[in-house]
């Protein structure tokens, strides 16, 4: 009799639900709380943990950015504006932004005077004047005739090495004790397009740079400036901070 009744299907109706409710009533609230906790854990707490890691990365990046900015500020505060102006003048004279014929002739003349050498004819290989100057380093070739022999040429080259604009002797032709030809190239480089980026790490003037500036100054870098230099420094470019 009992076997037959247990095999009967349980009817799904209100009474069945009531029976189930009363039977499992003590578990309902606890199970519901556990379920809600699980939902909260996966839906809110785990994403919040992920967000915290992301925030931590942002803080590290921000801290690094601030370190760079502080370093930049420290470098720029230490530098004197007058020193910067002087260094620009010296370096721009040593390496002009364009073909500075007057400065080149002055350098050649000074080298000849210092080395006690008589100069003859000279010719420039100017090249195209219509080309738009690019930021690459370029040279201007000058072929010089010297009234002298090998020792005169040696003295002249040595003297020319300590003149600005910077030059290099590429070939020497000594025909006799009183006739020589020296081919020289004078360097120039157009100013680069500068843009201000506060977050890019600045490199200050190192001791080596300072030494180089002093050498250039000794070459006569500052004194040979004939007129005001036009340096393309933008007046007020938008900074990344203000742009944001």
């Amino acid at each position: 009799m009992s076997t037959t009744s247990s095999n009967k299907p349980i009817p799904i109706n209100e009474t069945t639900f009531r029976i189930l409710y009363f039977r499992f009533k003590p578990y309902l609230i606890s199970t519901g709380v556990v379920l809600i906790c699980i939902i909260l854990f996966f839906q809110f707490i785990i994403p919040q943990i992920g967000q915290w890691f992301s925030l931590r990365d942002q803080v590290i990046a921000e801290q690094q950015k601030i370190d760079v900015l502080n370093q930049n500020l420290s470098i720029i505060t230490r530098i004197n504006n007058a020193t910067l102006d002087r260094d620009i003048q010296i370096t721009a004279t040593a390496l002009p932004s364009n073909k500075d014929f007057a400065a080149i002739l002055s350098a050649v003349s000074n080298a000849a005077t210092t080395s006690n050498v008589s100069l003859g004819d000279y010719s420039f290989q100017v090249g195209s004047l219509s080309d738009t100057p690019t930021a690459t380093q370029t040279t201007l070739q000058l072929v010089l005739s010297i009234k002298g022999g090998i020792t005169d040429v040696e003295r002249f080259i040595q003297s020319l090495k300590t003149q600005v604009p910077l030059s290099d002797v590429t070939s020497v032709q000594i025909n006799s004790a009183s006739s020589s030809t020296v081919t020289t190239v004078f360097y120039y480089k157009p100013f680069p397009q500068l843009s201000f980026n506060s977050t890019a790490p600045l490199i200050g003037v190192t001791a080596q740079d300072d030494q180089l500036v002093k050498s250039l100054q000794a070459f006569g870098g500052e004194s040979s400036i004939t007129g005001p230099l036009t340096i393309p420094i933008p007046t007020a470019p938008p900074s990344p901070a203000t742009a944001q």
């Binding site: 900015l69 680069p192 506060s198 200050g204 180089l212």
Partner: peptide
């Protein structure tokens, strides 16, 4: 700090120009 640097941007640009020239000269 960025605002302070923006006030000194002329100096920064001059420094960048000097560094560029010195690298080339070297």
């Amino acid at each position: 700090i960025t605002q302070n640097l923006t006030l000194s941007q002329q100096k920064i640009l001059k420094l960048m120009l000097i560094k560029d020239r010195l690298t080339q000269i070297n």
